[in-house]
Design a protein around this nucleic acid. Structure first.
Length: 425
RNA sequence: GGAGAUGUACUCAAGUGGCUGAAGAGGUACCCCUGCUAAGGGUAUAGGUCGCAUUGCGCGGCGCGAGGGUUCAAAUCCCUCCAUCUCCGCCA
């Protein structure tokens, strides 16, 4: 949600930024019109309410003095009727107003490059040499099958397409990765959390999944509850409707959860392997920052995501998302992309965003600089650190050997009981 | 899942239709007293949000878990929802 005051004062700037995302800015004019009507109605109804309050006091006085108040009461009856009518109209206008407001994406930062889609994202740095194989490397789904690390067929039987059982060393490697990632983030002072994985609609609204992206979510039948598509939802909403004191900042959380995505509209894409599933594990980082600190925090958090791949010694690059690819609530996003031989390309493994005050306004998350200062909206940030399944895919493909085995990255070996290779059982 | 109870400000708590922006206590801040601390005394302190105004403190609406309703008027009556507690049932 944007600040309506900003839209009023700086209309042209807002329109320009909305347009850059490929959205029709006409809705801004519509919003301003509704806003004007809304404020007009508020003034009218408040004036009447003020009068009613005053007269009500007088009625109380008269009653106390055993005077007759019938005529004033009658008059107030009409005033009450008028208030009701204006309030009804006001409610309609405000509903429409909020509908439109909650459909406006966050303002993009000036650094965000213009572009139509992900092909126009701009690389900002690259790390590690991509390996040249002196044999034909296998895609990770073949490795999973050959080493019996995962079972997609039986998952399809039980749950459907885009689900997986990880089996044996496959399950152990998944667990090792999650523990490794959480340990690294812990060292960087992110507070570890285990969170709910089912939330109410209100939480989804705050972080921006609702109302616009409902089709991406799984909803529990006959309830107002949804499975989370990322722990960004539960971590960011932790302080929903609260005002934090300055000494609590910055807030830094990390959590591992399952993530559930309906993947509506992605039929036929990434159909094999661990890249695109309805359920996957992800370790997430979320931060809440003073507005003046959030841009530095975005850079730092991106480094924290990259650091996982540095430690795993897997090649990656980092791109800044262009206007056509950046998410709805984000002002600026870096994607960290890992090298996948099977795609012969870099594939997103982390997305790190500064949502500025966009989610904080929706979720009413504030802080006070001191005891006497006014509450201000926080800036919220989130980033994967990392998508666990995709990390596993990257390890299998980048660390595979000619004999079909996979070398386990050194940093993971302590988490695998000292095991050095994955091989056929 | 069944039955009952509760939800007021930082905390505890009074308040069953008008005089309640909301008693009282604690807490917190400052001051007095005292060599210091404690105890004692005094003063202050009700959040937030919305609208108007902003040459200056301002004016007003909302607000007693949330949302509706009744009424000239609601913390107080009614409805729905949420949360907490107790008992029973069930269960990892």
């Amino acid at each position: 949600m944007l600040d309506i005051k900003l839209i009023r004062q700086d209309t042209e700037m807002v329109k320009e930024k909305v347009t850059k995302r490929g959205m029709d800015a006409g809705v801004i004019d519509e919003i301003l019109k509704l806003d004007a009507e809304r404020r007009d109605l508020i003034q009218k109804t408040e004036e009447l309410k003020s009068r009613r309050n005053k007269v009500s006091g007088e009625i109380a006085q008269k009653k106390k003095n055993k005077e007759d108040a019938e005529d004033v009461i009658k008059e107030m009856r009409d005033v009450g009727e008028e208030i009701k009518q204006i309030d009804n109209r006001l409610n309609e206008v405000e509903d429409k107003f909020h509908d439109l407001m909650s459909g406006i994406p966050n303002l993009i930062h000036d650094d965000v490059p213009e572009g139509a889609d992900d092909s126009e994202n701009v690389e900002v740095r690259r790390s590690g040499e991509t390996r040249t194989f002196d044999f034909e490397p296998k895609p990770h789904w073949d490795i999973l099958e050959d080493l019996e690390l995962a079972d997609f067929e039986r998952a399809a039987k039980v749950s459907g397409a885009r689900f997986v059982y990880q089996t044996g060393d496959g399950a152990r490697l998944e667990r090792a990765l999650m523990n490794f990632m959480l340990d690294v983030h812990n060292k960087n002072d992110y507070r570890e959390m285990m969170t709910p994985q089912i939330v109410r609609a209100g939480a989804m609204y705050s972080t921006g999944q609702l109302p616009k992206f409902a089709e991406d979510l799984f909803k529990l039948e006959d309830t107002d509850m949804y499975t989370i598509p990322t722990s960004e939802v539960t971590l960011t909403n932790y302080y929903k409707d609260e005002t934090l004191s300055d000494d609590m900042l910055p807030v830094k959380f990390t959590a591992q959860t399952a993530c559930f995505r309906s993947e509506a509209g992605s039929a036929g894409r990434d159909t094999r392997g661990l890249i695109r599933l309805h359920q996957f594990n992800k370790v997430e980082m979320v931060r809440m920052e003073r507005p003046e600190d959030s841009w530095a925090a975005l850079e730092e958090m991106t480094r924290h995501a990259e650091n996982i791949l540095d430690l795993l010694e897997i090649p990656y690059r980092t791109v800044i998302l262009c206007t056509g690819d950046i998410g709805f609530g984000s002002s600026k996003t870096y994607d960290v992309e890992v090298w996948l031989p099977s795609y012969n390309d870099y594939k997103e493994i982390s997305s790190v965003s500064n949502m500025t005050d966009f989610q904080a306004r929706r979720g009413n998350i504030k802080f006070k600089r001191s005891r006497d200062s006014k509450p201000e909206l926080l800036h919220t940030l989130n980033g994967s650190g990392l998508a666990v399944g995709r990390t596993m895919a990257a390890i299998l493909e980048n660390y595979q050997n000619e004999d079909g085995t996979v070398t386990i990255p050194e940093v993971l070996r302590p988490y695998m009981g000292g095991q050095e290779v994955l091989k056929k059982v």
